[in-house]
Nucleic acid binder design. Structure first.
Lengths: 114, 114
DNA sequence: GATCATACCTTGCAAGACTATGCCTAGCGT
DNA sequence: ACGCTAGGCATAGTCTTGCAAGGTATGATC
C-alpha cells in the first residue's frame, strides 16, 4: 500500500542531494531543510530515506564527509561533493531532465484523429 | 549495480500504461509499442516490467482485460481502462507533473549571492 | 525449415524509500 | 529542576517495483 502519498522520490533523491551539495557544503539535516525550502515544502525528505541515501552516495565516492560542529554547538556530519560526484551530478541531471520531458510528452498526448 | 542505465521509470510505469489506455484499448505488446513510439524510442518498456505491472494494475481494478484476437490472427489480451482507473490516472498525472516541476526547479537552483 | 516479429508469462533478484524506533544535546519556558 | 521542542544522526525491517533471464507459442517471410 505504498506510493499513497510520498514515495515519488524514487530514484531522484540522490540527485537532489548531490545538487544541494553542488551549491554548498551541508550536513544531513541541512540538506533536507534546503530541499524543502527551495521547493517550498512540496518535497519532504524523510530522515529514514536521507541518511541511508547519504551512505550509498558516500560509498560511491560522490561525496566525502567529516565531523564538525554547528553554529549552535551540535556535532554535525558535513558532506562535500567530490569531483566525480560533480561529474556524476551533471550527467544524472541531464538524464533526468530528458526523462521527465519524455514522460511529460506522453502525458500530454491526445487522441489522434485516425 | 542497478540504475546504471535504465531504471528511471521507477513509479512512472503504471502512470504511462494508464495514459496509453486512456486514448485507446490496447494489448500489452501494443502498450509498449505505443509508449516507445510517442517518445521516439527514449522510453523503452521491458516485458519483464510490463506484464507484472499490468497484473498489479488490474488487481487494483484500474483496468480490466479480456482475451481477443489481433488483426493478424494472434491471441491477445486487451486491456481497458475502468472508471476508477481514469480517476486515478487524472490524480496521478497531476501529482507527477507537480513533482517533476519541483525537481526541475531544484536542479535549476543557482548559488545565491549570500 | 529457419528466422524473425509478434505475443504472452514467471521467477528471482536488487535497489531504494518509508515506518518505526532509538539515541543524544541545546535552548527555552515555567 | 523539569519538560518540551528543535536539531542532529542512525539502523532494522518492510514493501514496492523494475529488470534480467528464462520460457512458450504462432504468423509471416524467405
Amino acid at each position: 500500500m505504498a506510493r499513497e502519498k510520498g514515495d515519488l522520490l524514487q530514484g531522484t533523491l540522490s540527485l537532489l542531494i548531490l545538487k544541494s551539495l553542488m551549491l554548498q557544503d551541508l550536513h544531513g539535516y541541512g540538506i533536507a531543510r534546503w530541499i524543502e525550502d527551495v521547493t517550498r515544502g512540496s518535497l519532504l525528505i524523510e530522515e529514514g530515506s536521507l541518511y541511508p541515501a547519504l551512505r550509498r552516495i558516500e560509498d560511491r565516492a560522490w561525496v566525502t564527509s567529516s565531523w564538525s560542529v554547528s553554529d549552535t554547538g551540535r556535532r554535525i556530519r558535513v558532506y562535500k561533493l567530490t569531483r566525480s560526484g560533480r561529474t556524476h551530478l551533471r550527467a544524472d541531471a541531464t538524464e533526468w531532465l530528458t526523462f521527465a520531458r519524455a514522460v511529460t510528452s506522453v502525458l500530454q498526448q491526445e487522441p489522434s484523429l485516425a
